[in-house]
Design a protein around this nucleic acid. Structure first.
Lengths: 246, 246
DNA sequence: CAAATTCGAGAGCACCGCTCTTGACTCCTC
DNA sequence: GAGGAGTCAAGAGCGGTGCTCTCGAATTTG
């Protein structure tokens, strides 16, 4: 349990700062970071399946068993990479959105930012949004970083609504009470003043966006709209209109 | 090469019929089927990663090396399962669509059929539409069966157009010449009379649909629209309207 | 019947995640 | 400053994986 605390500190999962009171702690923090870096490198080359603890240890010039002092299992190492990936993507989107002024431009920027990040870090993208790794259950630690990504989109939509800039182009079907309730959960947390109908459209566009990036990464567009740059841009415009941000 | 022919025959990948001239050929065909069945069983339990040639052989009471007489590698076994999955899904959707009369109802039926099949066969769904297995390249044999699935949707859209039932609810952005050309590839093959604008909307809805099923299977809807029945139905209606099939 | 082909079985290679033990090292406390 | 507590890298080892090769037996073919 003391060792767990140290691991948490080294992983940066606690809000407390490094401290590094002793040389041992500093060495531990550095080695933990080196392991994650090498693991991320291997992840980028061969994907999650190709990530081998033994290979990481080999590359770092140590024996495989030594690595278990830093990450109790392969899954724990993967969890650390997942958290880092969520944070990296979240930061990227926040930055991309911050570059635009009007809410609707922030929405567009976030869409294009997501695709760009996914194409540049396809294995990390697959790690967080791809087929779940069998037998792996994401621990609670991943929830908070994961929230940063949708927050960018919902934030843009919320601000657009407040500025009176959201006008859906056609009337959709009625929402059932249960669906209203479910959408209301998100609403209560992030956008209490936006109507459920608008949030539901945003959610549809959100899913469409991730479907598109997933299809492109999976090569499902082969022989049709591949390369997908034009289709992506066109679809973002269509879905932006659909949401009412056009 | 002769053995390849026999394998192809046993797999049913050639259009020729069994023949079974000798007892050996019959035994080979039966064992090949048994291997695929057991592999499919294990796939359904633990996913593609959990599929082990040794475990399949063990379960069938044979030695692992004997299995290589039937499938030259694990990837070949996976390929056979992929082809079967495409065909099973394709047949399911064709049947679901055939149950409806009006084209727009066939479209809806295909949407709901896809989700139902994906939920009932999640690992097979992931095999064909999930994150690509690293290092695995789908051979040409998978292309034709894969085409059956989109053909159902495009067929419904085409028939609806011919019946004059397609009316997009709002004018979208202009399509670039390059995007027109890309969409035109699909158009030329399956729906030569449907305008590119309509096909592009259909493609957007298509991607949205797979994004939704993928999100649901991946548990991405947790704590929001989960269970996703209501959201799925609502979104299908929205996207059906978006395409102009409403 | 004899030759050619196909088959199951076994041994073996290199890799994997993970566990346990051992001996050396560092740190904290008396 | 010396000891004990805690931490560390290393090694051996377990059971698992995909895959290759060889060998003798069975079956099909001529």
């Amino acid at each position: 349990m003391l060792s767990n605390l140290c691991t948490d500190l080294a992983n940066g999962t606690l809000s407390g700062m490094p401290a590094h009171r002793t040389a041992r702690e500093r060495a531990r923090a550095e080695l933990t970071a080196a392991i994650k870096d090498e693991a991320r490198r291997q992840l980028g080359e061969q994907g999650a399946d190709g990530l081998s603890l033994r290979a990481v240890a080999r590359e770092l010039g140590m024996v495989s068993s030594a690595l278990y002092r830093y990450f109790p299992s392969r899954d724990d190492l993967l969890t650390a990479l997942i958290i880092d990936a969520y944070n990296a993507l979240g930061a990227t989107l926040e930055k991309a959105a911050a570059g635009a002024d009007a809410p609707r431009e922030r929405w567009r920027a976030a869409c294009h930012g997501l695709r760009a990040w996914g194409l540049a870090n396809r294995h990390e993208y697959s790690l967080i949004y791809g087929t779940p790794i069998p037998g792996y259950r994401a621990p609670q630690d991943t929830v908070t970083p994961a929230t940063r990504v949708p927050a960018v989109f919902i934030g843009a939509l919320r601000d657009a609504w407040r500025a009176g800039e959201v006008k859906p182009p056609f009337k959709g079907p009625e929402m059932s009470p249960e669906l209203r309730r479910q959408v209301g959960i998100v609403r209560a947390q992030l956008a209490p003043d936006v109507p459920e109908e608008v949030l539901a459209r945003g959610l549809i566009a959100w899913v469409q966006l991730f479907g598109m990036v997933g299809f492109e990464l999976g090569g499902q567009f082969a022989n049709t709209v591949d390369p997908a740059d034009e289709f992506f841009t066109h679809t973002v415009e269509q879905m932006t209109l659909f949401v009412g941000l056009g």
